[in-house]
Amino acid sequence: KKYKVVEVKENKDGTVELVVENENGEKKKITLSKEELDKLKAGDTVELK
């Protein structure tokens, strides 16, 4: 499934919390490390299994 990044929030521990949404409007929260996030920004599309 493809999800669009709608919100990006940095946590104090250096991880980043993303809120992503698919075309049905379903939202998910995922947490990434700073390194994983470096290639993402709001409006990008991510694929989740």
Rank of each mutant, 00 (worst) to 15 (best):
E21D: 01
K34E: 06
E7S: 10
T31D: 02
K41P: 04
E10C: 14
K28L: 15
E36P: 09
D44L: 06
E36I: 10
A42G: 04
K39T: 12
K34R: 12
K41A: 11
V20C: 10
K4D: 04
V5M: 02
L32Q: 02
E35Q: 11
V8D: 00
N24V: 13
K41H: 06
E47D: 15
Y3V: 10
E36K: 06
K34W: 12
V8A: 05
L37T: 15
L18A: 08
G43C: 10
L18C: 09
K29T: 13
K28M: 14
K2F: 11
D44G: 10
V19T: 09
I30L: 09
E35I: 11
K29L: 12
A42C: 14
E7Q: 06
K9P: 00
K12F: 12
E36Y: 14
V6G: 01
D44W: 00
G14A: 01
L48N: 12
K12G: 15
E26T: 10
V46H: 05
K29C: 14
K1D: 11
L32A: 09
N24E: 13
K4H: 07
V20D: 00
G43I: 04
V8Q: 04
E35C: 13
V46S: 03
D38Y: 02
E36S: 14
K27D: 02
I30N: 00
L37K: 15
S33V: 11
V6S: 03
K12L: 13
S33M: 14
K34A: 12
K1Q: 12
V16E: 00
I30R: 01
E26Q: 08
K34G: 15
V20R: 00
V6F: 03
E10Q: 09
K41C: 06
L32E: 00
G14C: 02
V20T: 03
A42L: 14
K27S: 07
T45M: 07
K27W: 08
V20P: 00
E7R: 02
K12M: 10
D44T: 03
A42P: 15
A42W: 03
E23C: 09
L48G: 12
E21N: 01
I30V: 12
Y3L: 12
D13R: 01
K28A: 08
D38F: 02
A42Q: 09
L48V: 15
